[in-house]
Design a binder for these strands. Structure first.
Length: 223
DNA sequence: TACTGATCATAG
DNA sequence: CTATGATCAGTA
């Protein structure tokens, strides 16, 4: 699948996928679906990237570079409520003194997102999960402010050596949580007295309540 | 049951 | 290890 040249083309591809099951899309793409997501948590996202023509690989750039759009799948239950928080990006833990919100990875990644809801309750077999209606989203002033506030608070803690005091509950809409192969992975960070320390790599996540509000504004109140 | 901390696969 | 894609699962 080649990259979509325009937003219109991207949306039109999404409309073709809406209502299909993951099993049907996998068959079209020649992808073998695992029995569950235990050992393949990212397969759904990667399949949608393939189906929509996003650039593959682990490059630190938008999924659709030409359009500046980031693709995110969003697992939802039967009522359209998100089942999980949404990973945004890795958090920088060193050399963050001069970081500014508007040039941050979080701000840039979230500036233009294509959300693809997937009906994905754990009791439903992977192949039977249905792709929903995708939509483009850009944070409004209020959402932008909430994100910036949380981001600045978290980054200040990181700069001041408070990394190990940060819990997942810190932000209102944005949270900092471990993002690693396991709890023994280490990366460099700033300690309490400004000294280099080793700590668990972290990532920024959107809390489920925040993505729930995005869905609600897009589709209205369900149930 | 929701949330926070832990974990899995793959590419470079 | 870092960055991509995320969900799992124990516990409060």
């Amino acid at each position: 699948m080649t990259a979509p040249a325009t937003v219109t083309e991207l949306i039109s591809r999404c409309q073709l996928l809406a209502g299909l099951t993951l099993g049907e899309v996998a068959a079209q793409l020649g992808v073998t679906l695992p029995a569950n997501l235990l050992r393949d948590k990212g397969i759904v996202g990667q399949m949608l990237e393939l189906a929509l023509g996003a650039s593959s690989g682990s490059k630190a750039e938008p999924d659709f570079p030409q359009l500046g759009i980031e693709l995110k799948t969003l697992p939802v239950d039967a009522r359209g409520k998100p089942l999980e928080s949404t990973y945004v990006c890795t958090a920088p833990l060193t050399d963050v003194g001069l970081q500014q919100w508007h040039s941050s990875w979080v701000c840039r990644k979230l500036s233009h997102v294509l959300w693809v809801p997937i009906w994905a309750e754990r009791s439903v077999p992977l192949a039977e999960r249905v792709i929903g209606t995708a939509f483009l989203w850009q944070p409004d002033a209020e959402q932008q402010a909430l994100l910036q506030q949380d981001w600045e608070e978290l980054m200040e803690l990181i700069v001041l050596g408070g990394i190990d005091e940060i819990k997942g509950a810190h932000g209102k809409v944005l949270q900092l949580r471990p993002k690693a192969a396991n709890s023994k992975a280490l990366t460099e960070a700033v300690g309490r007295d400004g000294e280099p320390i080793q700590t668990l790599p972290r990532g920024f996540y959107l809390k489920a309540a925040f993505t729930a509000a995005i869905l609600q504004r897009q589709f209205g109140n369900l149930v």
